[in-house]
Design a protein around this nucleic acid. Structure first.
Length: 564
RNA sequence: CGGGAUGUAGCGCAGCCCGGUUAGCGCGCCUGCCUUGGGCGCAGGAGGUCGCGAGUUCGAAUCUCGCCAUCCCGACCA
């Protein structure tokens, strides 16, 4: 491919809207251009990368028996009513104004409708169906270039199984395929246990790349390899233990004290004897949640307990339900509440909490004696430095970008849409599903985040738009032009991807800067200096190392480089 | 959706506070010459509804109000 012909509009200056390296470099390298918030055009170089990623994904998906589909992005809204996900997605789903259609944010429903109509027998199972297709999500705030867009490319696959062990096998096959895919594209990734969220189901894992630009937070144990999204991460913090004999409950006047920090200062006590009370509404029913001191409630963990529609109570609801405002609320003397508490509070006594009377607190509360706790759950957010639950080493907490997510969905969708089959005993059963996604643009962006320097992108053998960047230093010199033309033809004949900078109106310095910016792993530089001695120069982008190679041997050199 | 910032040529920015020539600079672009191992040099040139709309004023890029767009923080995020 001649650089004089291919449209790669590189930029010398950094566009002011881009802050993270991958976004800046994708713009500067002429891979993408913005069209609106979270909407990007992929230019020839960017699309070439996309196709490379898709090629690897297809190879691995086909390898586990996946069959590629092409499903419509335009879906009847009734289809989504069947699983009640119009409500679940809410404003995140795009709705078409002049038809009862939506733009699909994912494809469980479409897959399930096909399965419902055509899967009749256990003999039809298992199936792995996948596609690589544009997804639409009306993100409230797109950000970080292509990492969170309103339109993006996703490889989504769905497993259909007759049995639970079958689902396990399909899930494990996907996990292995994902490891292969991310390894092949040259990413340093890790896998975490994750929350299934509104997708439902029994288990899920995310494939993550560590990055400051990431939107997810993960807890990692370097000791035993435990890794979990902070949404589900546990840590071994000690409980607020039983503290002597339970004394009689007494009221204390605490004028103006609202927060846990203020209460601790006012009473000069340790945080661990304070019980923080939060009120959520689960449907019509108020739920009080008790946490130790300043432990942060983890809303993902809470959702698992209360369901997805739980929300914090409004201040006026608080007052009506408890008789007090936030800051003076507590578990004693409530009516009609479900009360749940964080595990750290199990068996604790002599606690201090709100009195449900403004400016008053109660001390010496014994949760067992003085109130009825419906259940104890792990509801707190794990913090960096807390001990790992399995090996006690301190946890690290890092930011990460989610590349892929795999779910065991179970029968949620088949139940809702009545997609069933007959087993070997002639008994009707729901199809057991799994769903699995990879963000294609994110693979590219993450690769750049992990592999770049001040001069530009550094592609790797596993993922590069071209194998070699051929630089003709001076197109006005007939001799070296002939050498470069010849090399270009030889590379092309061998189906090695070559980007040939044959431009005649650009200075050598300009070409070198562009080559570094575009980041092909190898640059073959054809200039008078070395051609005079029958040589060309090979520059390794990653290390800057340069080698002088005989003209006749350079094609072989490149071939060999990619073989190893 | 809450908070903050920005909007002037394709890109990066100055001018705005304190209203007043023909709205400027760098890069890029076009023409010609020159140069050819790290974003060359010289000369000439094209390119602008100053985000949009109203208002104040003799006069608005500049002041006021409304709207829109983009980015950042937060909430949200299968």
């Amino acid at each position: 491919m001649k650089l004089s012909k291919i449209f790669i509009p590189t930029l010398k200056e950094v566009p002011s809207d881009a802050l993270i390296p991958s976004h800046q470099l994708m713009l500067r390298a002429g891979m993408i251009r913005p069209l609106g918030a979270g909407i990007y055009s992929f230019l020839p170089l960017g699309y070439r990368l996309m196709k490379k990623v898709m090629e690897i994904i297809r190879d691995e998906m086909d390898g586990i028996g996946g069959q590629e589909f092409h499903l419509p992005a335009l879906n009847p809204v009734e289809l989504w009513e069947e699983t009640d996900r119009v409500k679940a997605f809410g404003d995140t789903m795009f709705h078409i104004k002049n038809r009862a259609l939506v733009l699909a944010p994912t494809h469980e429903e479409v897959i399930c409708s096909i399965a419902k109509n055509h899967i009749r027998s256990y003999r039809d199972l298992p199936q792995i169906w996948y596609q690589i297709q544009t997804k639409f999500r009306n993100e409230a705030r797109p950000r970080s270039g292509v990492i969170r867009g309103r339109q993006f490319l996703m490889k989504d696959s769905y497993s259909l199984d007759a049995t639970w062990p079958g689902l396990d096998a399909s899930y494990d096959a996907h996990a292995q395929a994902y490891k292969n895919i991310f390894t092949r594209v040259g990413l340093k990734f890790f896998i975490v246990g994750a929350s299934s969220g509104a997708m439902g189901g029994s288990a899920s894992q995310e494939f993550m790349v560590e990055s400051e630009a990431g939107e997810d937070t993960c807890a990692i144990c370097d000791g035993c390899g435990y890794a979990a999204n902070i949404e589900v991460a546990a840590s071994a913090v000690p409980g607020a233990l039983k503290n002597g004999e339970s004394a009689a409950v007494e009221e204390i006047h605490t004028p103006g004290v609202k927060t846990i920090d203020e209460l601790r200062e006012f009473l000069k006590v340790d945080e661990s004897v304070l019980a923080k009370s939060l009120v959520y509404m689960a449907g019509q029913r108020p739920v009080m949640i008790l946490m130790v001191g300043n432990d942060q409630l983890n809303e993902s963990k809470l959702q698992v307990v209360l369901g997805a529609d739980a929300r914090p109570a409004h201040p006026d609801e608080l007052k009506a339900l408890t008789g007090a405002d936030g800051g003076s609320i507590g578990p004693i003397g409530l009516d009609g509440f479900r009360i749940i508490a964080d595990k750290r509070l199990e068996g604790a006594n002599n606690l201090i909490s709100g009195a449900n009377k403004n400016d008053y607190h109660l001390r010496n509360i014994d949760l067992k004696r003085d109130t009825k706790i419906d259940a104890y759950y792990d509801l707190r957010t794990a913090l960096a430095g807390e001990p790992c639950t399995t090996c006690s080493k301190p946890l690290r907490v890092i930011r990460a970008i989610e590349l892929g997510h795999i779910f065991k969905l179970g029968t949620k969708y088949a139940d809702a849409m009545k997609a069933s089959f007959l087993d070997e005993h002639g008994k009707e059963k729901p199809i057991i599903m799994g769903s699995y996604g990879i963000g294609v643009e994110r693979v590219i962006a993450c690769h750049i985040e992990q592999s770049h320097d001040k001069n530009g992108i550094v592609w790797t053998k596993g993922l590069t738009p071209f194998h070699v960047h051929l630089v003709l230093v001076n197109a006005n010199n007939a001799k070296i032009t002939a050498v470069a033309n010849d090399l270009n033809e030889k590379f092309e004949a061998l189906l090695l991807g070559v980007l040939y900078d044959d431009r005649g109106d650009v200075s050598p310095g300009f070409k070198f800067k562009d080559a570094d910016l575009l980041g092909m792993p190898l640059q073959v530089i054809v200039g008078e200096k070395h051609v005079a001695n029958g040589n060309v120069e090979v520059k390794h982008r990653a290390t800057g190392e340069r080698e002088i190679i005989e003209i006749g041997k350079v094609v072989q050199y490149v071939e060999k480089y990619y073989e190893s």
